[in-house]
């Protein structure tokens, strides 16, 4: 099932399928937010925003607005 990163819940993991490079900062790509890389939602701030993620081994926080532009596929575990 294809969903965006903004839809996943705390503790869920997935694989990045696509990122719309016009909508997200290039810096995020450089930090490893690229198709094929794993992602996990570690923690959310109140109102589920921003989101504290582990993307490809890098721990970072982004806003929900940005996460909407990252397409992922949920994986088990």
């Amino acid at each position: 099932m294809h969903i965006t990163l903004a839809d996943i819940k705390r503790g869920e993991k997935g694989i990045i399928l696509d990122v719309s490079s016009e909508e997200i900062p290039f810096k995020l790509l450089e930090m490893g937010c690229l198709p094929g890389n794993p992602v996990e939602l570690l923690q959310v701030a109140p109102f589920a925003d921003p989101m504290y993620l582990n993307i490809n081994g890098t721990h970072l926080a982004i806003r929900k607005d940005t996460a909407k532009h990252i397409l992922i596929e949920l994986s088990d575990g």
Partner: peptide, 11 residues
């Protein structure tokens, strides 16, 4: 302006 926000959470 676009709302960009990326912050690394270091160890």
């Amino acid at each position: 302006s676009k709302s960009y926000f990326v912050v690394e959470m270091p160890n």
